[in-house]
Computed example of a mutant assay.
Amino acid sequence: MRDYKWLNEFCLNRFGSAAALESMLPQPRSSDALRAITDDRYLSTLSLRIFRAGLKHSLVDAKWPAFEQVFFGFDPEKVVLMGAERLENLMQDARIIRHLGKLKSVPRNAQFILDVQKEKGSFGALIAEWPEREVVGLWKYLAKHGSQLGGLSAPRFLRMVGKDTFVPTDDVVAALKAQNIIDKAPTSLKDLAAVQAAFNHWQTQSGRPLCQLSAMLAFTVNH
C-alpha cells in the first residue's frame, strides 16, 4: 500500500499544480451544516438517490419537481401515511417515474427517518454524529434500516448531502486493487474494514477529508 505522499505527487503531476488539483476536489459539509438540513430534505435526497439508481440522472432530476408535489414536499409525517392505494394511483401519473418498488420505498424511508427522529431528535443528528473513521458502519446502518439503500446507494446518498465519505466507484476499486488492499469490489465486512483502514491511514497522514482522498485515488486510474 502506497502512502499519501505518493498519492499527492501523482495527482499534482496529473493536474500540473496544487490549485488545479484543489479545484477538482469535493468539499464535505460541516457537522453543523448536516444538522441544519431538515428531515424533509433528507427524505427528498434519499428518494432522489433511489430513483437515480439505474437511470439517467438528468431524466430523474427533470421530473423531481413533480415528485416534490405528489409526495407533499417529502414531509415524513405526511408521506408515512400514504397507503398502497395511493401509491398504486401514482403508477398512472405520467409526470413521475412509475416504478412501484421505488415508489413504495418513499413511505418506508419516511418511517425510517421518523424512527431516527424520535431517537436522535432529527435525521441530521444521526448523519452529523456518525464518525467518519467508521463511515462504512453508517452505510450498513442505512442499508439495514432503510429501504433500497444497498450497494452504492448509501455512500452515494451521503455524498449528495455532504457527509464526508469515500465511495467505492469502479475507479476507486481499481485503484485499491492496484495497491493490493482488496482483490474485488468490497462487500464483505473484512474487505470494507480493510478499505476503511486504508482511508483512515491516508487521512491521518494528510488531514484531508475522505471524499477528497476518494477522488484523488480515482484520479490514479488511467482511462
Rank of each mutant, 00 (worst) to 15 (best):
R2H: 14
D3M: 12
D3F: 08
W6R: 14
L12S: 11
N13L: 15
F15K: 09
S17I: 13
L21P: 03
L21F: 12
M24W: 08
M24I: 10
D32G: 11
A33V: 12
L34E: 05
A36S: 14
D40K: 08
D40A: 13
D40Q: 13
L46R: 01
S47Q: 03
R49D: 02
R49K: 14
I50H: 04
F51E: 02
F51K: 02
R52C: 11
H57C: 14
H57V: 15
S58M: 15
L59D: 15
V60I: 15
D61V: 15
A62M: 15
K63Q: 14
P65H: 14
A66R: 07
V70F: 06
V70G: 04
G73H: 13
K78F: 12
V79W: 03
V79G: 06
D93S: 05
D93G: 06
A94Q: 13
A94M: 13
I96D: 00
I97C: 05
P107F: 03
P107Y: 04
R108N: 14
N109R: 09
I113S: 04
Q117V: 14
F123Q: 05
G124D: 03
A125L: 12
L126M: 11
P131T: 08
E132I: 07
E132M: 02
V136W: 06
W139F: 13
Y141A: 08
L142F: 11
K144P: 07
H145K: 14
G150E: 05
V161S: 09
K163L: 10
D164P: 11
P168V: 04
T169R: 05
T169K: 05
D171V: 09
K177C: 00
N180I: 01
I182F: 00
I182W: 07
I182H: 00
D183C: 01
A193Y: 00
A193C: 09
Q196V: 01
F199L: 04
H201K: 02
W202Y: 14
W202A: 03
Q203M: 08
Q205P: 07
A215N: 02
A215K: 02
F219K: 01
N222Y: 03
H223Y: 10
H223D: 08
